[in-house]
Amino acid sequence: METVIRGASIYFILLVILRLSGRRTVAQMTPFDLVLLLVVSETTQQALLGDDFSITNAVVLMIVLFGIDIGLSYFKQWAPGAARYMDGAPTVLISDGKVDFRAFHRARVSLDDVLTAARQNQGLERLDQIKYAVLEADGAVSIIPIA
């Protein structure tokens, strides 16, 4: 019983903290984010397992975590409103060539981030070559160039 409670509690606590910390910490990984991820994974490992290092505990825990994940995927299909809270929604940063500075500021994305994505994904050189830039729900920046 304790394994199930530990697994479910840590899963949901981590989900809430990651979601509230903003999406930048998930997809756009800087060296600081990598350090954060390593430390968080080590911390949660202790809380998940406690002092029980048996294979039974590990197997039960894995099944609980995958089970919650599968259950939540069905729940998100059934309740799209709740899915927005859990996964977030895309944010249009540049619309038809116009930069939405408020969206940049609130989503904590810089023009450098967008230009980096434009160079990496589309081989673009300048901001004025970008028609649309969208900060996707997974934290990646999609670029659509001016045709």
């Binding site: 929604a89 895309p90 944010t91 619309s95 038809d96």
Partner: peptide, 12 residues
């Protein structure tokens, strides 16, 4: 603006 996506700006 021609993009097909649900931005849900008020929610955001």
């Amino acid at each position: 603006d021609g993009l097909q996506l649900n931005e849900h700006r008020q929610f955001q």
